[in-house]
Simulated assay, not measured.
Amino acid sequence: MSRWEPNARGRLEQAALALYRERGFEQVTVAEIAGRAGLTERTFFRHYADKREVLFAGSAALQELLVRGVAEAPADASPIAAVVAALAAAGEQFDARRDLARQRQVVIETNQELLERELVKLATLAEALAGALRGRGVAAPAADLAGQVGIALLRVAFVRWAADADDRRLETHVRAAFAELRDELR
C-alpha cells in the first residue's frame, strides 16, 4: 500500500458502508474496512476513533450548521420558524450525499446499538438548537420545545426524503412536514 492515497476518508466511509450492508455492522472489523479501502488500519484510526464513527463523524458539522442556521434566521422569525429555516438550509448537505445517507440509514436501522447512538445524536442536536434559540433571547421552555419539535420534523422529513423516488430536496420534505404539523395544530 502506498503511503498516501487521495480521499482516504471517503474511501474508508464507502468501504465501511458496503461491508456493513453486506455482512452486518457487528461482523465487520476495522482491518477489513481498511483493506477494502486499500489503506492501513493506522490510516483508518487517523480518521475515525472506531468503526461506529464512520457513521457518526458528521454530527459535529451538522450541529454547527444547524446552530448557524438558527443564528442567521431573520430576527423576527418565531422560534420554530428559525429552526425550520436552519433545517431547510442544512438540507443541502444531505442532498449532496443522498446515496451515502440512504446507505447509512439502512445500516443504523438494523442495529440496536447504532439506533441508540443515533437517538443520542438527535438529542444532542435538539439541545444545540434550543441553545441557539436561547442565544436569540428565546425563553428556555419555548426554546427547548422548538428544538425538540425541530428534530421530530427532521426525522419525519429524512425518512420521506430517503424513500423519495423523485429525489426531491430535503428542504422540500422539511417544509412539508412543518406545514402538516402547523395544519394539525390548527
Rank of each mutant, 00 (worst) to 15 (best):
A75N: 00
D164Y: 01
R97I: 10
T43I: 09
T124K: 10
A57D: 14
G150E: 05
A142G: 05
R155G: 13
R134L: 05
D50P: 01
E32R: 01
D95M: 06
R182A: 13
V70S: 02
L154V: 07
A152M: 12
A61G: 11
G137D: 03
R186P: 11
V149E: 08
A162N: 09
A146P: 01
V28A: 05
S2A: 15
V120K: 12
T172N: 12
A85G: 15
G69H: 04
A73M: 00
G91F: 03
H173N: 02
L65H: 12
G24W: 06
A8E: 10
Q103I: 00
G10M: 06
V84E: 11
Y20S: 02
F178N: 12
R102N: 11
R36I: 06
T43M: 10
F25P: 04
I33R: 02
E171S: 13
E118D: 15
R97M: 11
W4A: 15
G150A: 04
A88N: 06
G131P: 01
L125D: 12
G38H: 02
A15E: 07
R3N: 14
V107D: 08
R168Q: 12
P141T: 05
A157P: 02
R134Y: 04
V138E: 00
A8G: 06
A96G: 10
R160Y: 10
I33K: 02
L12F: 01
P79M: 03
K51F: 00
V159C: 09
A60P: 07
V156N: 13
A143L: 03
R9N: 07
L114C: 03
D166H: 13
A142V: 11
